[in-house]
Each structure stands twice: as structure tokens, then as C-alpha cells.
Design a protein around this nucleic acid. Structure first.
Lengths: 336, 336
DNA sequence: TTGAAAGCGCTAACAA
DNA sequence: TTGTTAGCGCTTTCAA
């Protein structure tokens, strides 16, 4: 059996095989009504028989839609890929897009050169939209993307641009509030907080939720800023123990940092939760791996990812869409 | 200033602006010689002036090259994304492709439906090639991809298909050999090994390197199989300590598992390296985070990723290309 | 060295 | 409901 580099069948072949015109085939393929049942069946059969697959380039040329969207990553890689949220986002994004026969192009925008590349790609009309991941407010990339005029949405709010860049996110503020209220309800009186970087939504919004509940009791010395790493959480907890020796609870803005805090408390000889209650955020895998297991705030990550993609797809057709904020859930385990 | 939805300039506009024909513009753009210097300069200026960016769809329609390649992920997500190797691969791949003005489409092939989708995408000619990541030998996806006839290469060997799917990889066997020889040279006599899953190249090849050096001394009871997780490494080390109490060294097929082994040894009251020497593999971030820091085998990850992409690009034009195996390096720290 | 022109495969407007 | 047809923007052959 000789291998022949057979040409892929075109809409023309399908038309011939089904005895209708190319126009009708196209109508069937695109679900534009006004096609007789007979024609439709014939076309579908012919498609199956010939193994026809639409040529995206041709379609794109005609419709000036590409059927692909770009996921733009700006965070330093290491952090992003360690983030379990990210893998969920990636899986959900490819899946949700696939349902619509769209594909995901990945671009990493580390340096300035990358930035130009992303902008050129977008300006070239090579993608219908951009999905921004962990872009910081001041990032020049943001402006570059906005200038291209390509619809963009973000996963998680872009601080300061909330009204410009639609986004889907978990209710960071509400989740933090719930956790803080819970700690208060448990009778804790000296409650500290370890925040994330304040230029991230998780950093500032969770802090807002915390201070919103505690008011003036959330004094400056009770609040320490971390960097979302385990080591950072440990260091922050140590600082807190020094300045506020009688602390009896701490709300940590991420599970990973909370794991570090647990470590610091252990080394300082404090029992958790007896002496100090610890509340985390994320409900990631580490939450159940620590001892004691973390009481934390669950983020509906998959849902956030899904909504982000949905938002982008809606944004492709509409001029503006509203942000989506999804409720979080308090998960009580052992640490508080 | 009113915002006008101006149409993007086409090659036609560039031709008009530079006073040459579209044909000549195309020739300049594609670096096909036979263009006078005058024409070339005029065209380049016009391109800059008009802000022209090539329309890939049109080009693709004509050339039947898409300028994009698909990265196919098959591993269960969790594991893959935790793998630091993966983030390197991703960054290097997008970067290397970008240099050639190509883009990276990401597809995740978890279930059967995904598999069909990948195959259809490839059969549709939507990508010029496929870059396979952590595909296992028996995976039906592999066959599906081969059937599409789209050139594919793998990052890391696909066991059993080494001669069919070109790949770039670190020298697992050689690295394992070097580590084993080092342990022997240190005077260790009872050397065990914790392997990775045997259906992965890192699992079987590193074991081969180990047994290659030790011969019959690598008895069955000295070898335990792990799963690349920290917990798995810890469990494996415990088993090893039970069956071979006088063990004085262990070669662990990944740093993460080695971290688990260290934990088990610590709990068993064995000193490292005094009582038991521990050798890892990867030289990942955990290697320096453990106490003691790990003596390990460094894999040239970035290089592997780069070579994989290079291989794929070469494969696009050539009928076959040879696998690339890159040397590893023994990194001596404290654990052995 | 250059220009003219055909046509890649598709969609959608128009006519029937 | 259907067929016909005009391009979408580009590359490349052919002729000059």
C-alpha cells in the first residue's frame, strides 16, 4: 500500500459528495438555518465520509475571526507555575474554549521584547481576544494590550483598572471578612494578619475584609506583609510573635504562607489552635497536608476560570461586560 | 480626536505607499532575494509607516503552513504543573518559537474526548507540528497523533517509540551511572535505589544506569519503586530501611522523592550522610532546600526544552531527525 | 528585477 | 430553501 500525500478534502469535495452547493454546505457547517433536512443529512454524511475538517485559515480570512485567544502570562514563571490555581485555569480555559472550537495560544510576557511581541501579535489580528493572567496594575504590557484594541479580560481583578478590564474573581474581601468574623466568634481577641503583596488583589482585598471587620482593633502592628511564599509566611509569623507576644489568632492570606506560619508557631512552642488559631486562604492542597489541617477559605477556582473565559467570549461580541465576583466558602478544619 | 475603526493595512497598502507591486512587497517580506535595494528600502519604510502586520490567515491559506505548533499535554495536570521542568519547557518553547515568529497552542489531552479534539485539530491542519510532553508509551493519543501524519517530537523519550518519535532528553542513564559510581567511590557498599515509575524514561533509564554500575550487587531487594512524589519517596525509604537495615547509601530518582527519603531517614534516626548517603536527581529547587542539601544530578532542562523545539522545527522540513541526548552533571553538596 | 494575475478555501450577499 | 459568486490577503508562477 503506497502512501499518497492526499490533499485534504475541502468544502468543495463535500458539496460534490452530497450533491448540494458549497453555499449549502457552509450553511450546514455554521448552523445558519434555512437548510432542508434532506440537505443537512446529506451534508453531514458527506462530511463524515470524506473526513472533512474546516480550514480555519480560509474561514479566518473571510470572517476576520481567528478562533483563538491568547493567554498572556506576565508573572515571573516560578511563582505562577507553582500556583495550583494556574493549572486549574489552564485546564478549564482550554476546555471551555474547545467546546466552542476555539484554541488557546500561550504567550509569556517576561521582558520588554516579549511585550512587543504580544502587542504585535494582537495588532496583527492573530487572536480574537486576550486573557490576562496575574497582570499587575502598573505593568506597561497592560497599556500595550489596551492600545491594540483587542478585547481583553483578566482572571482576577487588575487593581486600579477594574472598570476598564472586565474580570472574574473570587470574593476576596467577603472571604476575608467571613474568616475574620469566624475568628472573632471563636472568642479570639488579639487577631493578627499576614497579607499578600499589596499590589495584588488577593493582597489588598483580603486585608480590606480583615480591617473591615476589626476596625481599629486591626492596628498597624497586628498586620505584617508577606509574599505568598512559605518562607515568607514563616518569617512574617516570627515578626508577629515578637511584636505581639500575646497574639491568639492570625489570618494568613494564603495557605502556603499559613503553612509557614504554622512552622514558626511550632518552633516558638505555641499550640495551634489552643494558643493561637490560624486561618488560611485558598483551600489548596497544602491546607490538608499541614498539621493541624488548615481552617481556610475556599475559592471556587474552576468556576473563576470558567467565568473568565465566558466573559471573554461574551466580550468578543459585546462592547462591555460586567465583572463577575464569585462567593467563597469558609472551610473549618483543625487550625482554628 | 475621533476613534475610527480603521481597517488594518494590507500588503496592497504597503505596495501603494512604496510605489512597487504587491509581488515585490511579498518578496521583501519573505526575504526571497531578487529585490533591488531601492525597492527594499521603500518597502521597509512603507511597512513602518503604515504599521503593516502580515495577515497570517491569508499567508496560511496560500502556503498551507500555519506558523503555530501544538504542545500536547497528557499527564494528569496536578503532577505536570508541579514539575518545575515543565515551566521551563513552556517558557523556552514559547521563546524559541517566537524567534521564528511561530506561536504555541496549548492542548490538554486528559480524557478520550480531548484526544479526539487533538486529533481533529491536527488533521485539520491547524498546526504545523506537535510537541509531546510526558506521553506514556501505551497512550492511545500517541497513535492518534501518528495517524494524523503531522510531524511530532517529544520532550523526553517516549518509551518503546524512540525510533519513531524524535526527542530531546537528558542523559538519564549516564547521569544515574555517574551518581552510582560516585557513591561507590565514596566507599559505600550497601547501595539502594528508589526509582520513578518504570513506564517513564526517568524511571527505567535511571534504574538502568544504576544496575549497569552495580551489576549483581543491585539485588532486587535493594530497589524500590516510587512515584515521583515526596510522600512516595518517604514510604519507599521506609521500606528500604526495613528490608535492608544496613543500607549505607541510596540513589533516589528525583529530588522530590529524595526529600521524602531524607525525612524517613531522619525519623528513623539515621544521620545523612554519615550513616546513609543520599543522592538525588534533577537539581531542582528542593535540592538546596533540604537539610542536608542534596547531592544530585543536574539536568540541562532549558537546553532540553530548546533542543526539543529545534528538533521539531527541523522535523517540519526534514523527513527524519535524530534524537538529541544532552549530558548531565553531578552536583556534590552535603547529602552524599 | 519587477508586475500581473491566478487561486488557496471559505462565507455571505444576492438572486432565483 | 438553494445556487452562484465575489472577494478576504497573501504567495508565487509566468512573462516581460
Amino acid at each position: 500500500m503506497r502512501k499518497v500525500a492526499r490533499k485534504r478534502p475541502t468544502i468543495h469535495d463535500v458539496a460534490a459528495a452530497s450533491g448540494v452547493s458549497r453555499g449549502t454546505v457552509s450553511r450546514v457547517l455554521n448552523g445558519k438555518g434555512n437548510v432542508s433536512l434532506a440537505a443537512e443529512t446529506a451534508v453531514r454524511r458527506a462530511v463524515a465520509e470524506t473526513g472533512y475538517v474546516v480550514n480555519r485559515a480560509a474561514r479566518s480570512l473571510k470572517t476576520s475571526r481567528t478562533g483563538s485567544i491568547v493567554m498572556v502570562l506576565s508573572e515571573p514563571q516560578e511563582r505562577l507555575f507553582e500556583d495550583p490555581n494556574f493549572s486549574v485555569l489552564m485546564r478549564v480555559a482550554t476546555g471551555t474554549l474547545a467546546e466552542r472550537d476555539m484554541s488557546l495560544v500561550l504567550m509569556i510576557a517576561g521582558g520588554e521584547g516579549d511585550r512587543d511581541r504580544v502587542a504585535r501579535y494582537l495588532r496583527g489580528g492573530h487572536a480574537d481576544g486576550a486573557l490576562l493572567v496575574s497582570i499587575h496594575a502598573g505593568d506597561p504590557l497592560l497599556e500595550a494590550i489596551e492600545r491594540t484594541g483587542v478585547p481583553a479580560v483578566a482572571c482576577g481583578a487588575v487593581l486600579g483598572r477594574e472598570s476598564v478590564i472586565p474580570y472574574a474573581a473570587a470574593d476576596d474581601r467577603g472571604g476575608a471578612r467571613a474568616m475574620t468574623e469566624y475568628l472573632v466568634a471563636q472568642g479570639r481577641r488579639r487577631i493578627g494578619m499576614i497579607t499578600g503583596p499589596l499590589d495584588t488583589p488577593g493582597g489588598s482585598l483580603r486585608l480590606e475584609g480583615f480591617t473591615g471587620v476589626l476596625g481599629r482593633r486591626a492596628s498597624k502592628q497586628m498586620i505584617v506583609h508577606g509574599d505568598y511564599t512559605q518562607a515568607g509566611g514563616e518569617a512574617a509569623m516570627r515578626r508577629l510573635l515578637e511584636t505581639v507576644p500575646d497574639i491568639d489568632a492570625v489570618f494568613v492570606a494564603s495557605d502556603l504562607m499559613a503553612a509557614g506560619a504554622l512552622q514558626a508557631l511550632h518552633l516558638a512552642g505555641r499550640r495551634v489552635p489552643e494558643d493561637v488559631a490560624v486561618g488560611g486562604f485558598d483551600d489548596s492542597a497544602v491546607a490538608t497536608a499541614t498539621r493541624p489541617a488548615l481552617t481556610t477559605v475556599r475559592q471556587p477556582l474552576a468556576k473563576v476560570a470558567e467565568e473568565t473565559v465566558r466573559l471573554l467570549i461574551a466580550r468578543l461580541d459585546e462592547d462591555r461586560v460586567d465583572p463577575v465576583i464569585l462567593p467563597t466558602e469558609l472551610v473549618v478544619r483543625e487550625s482554628a
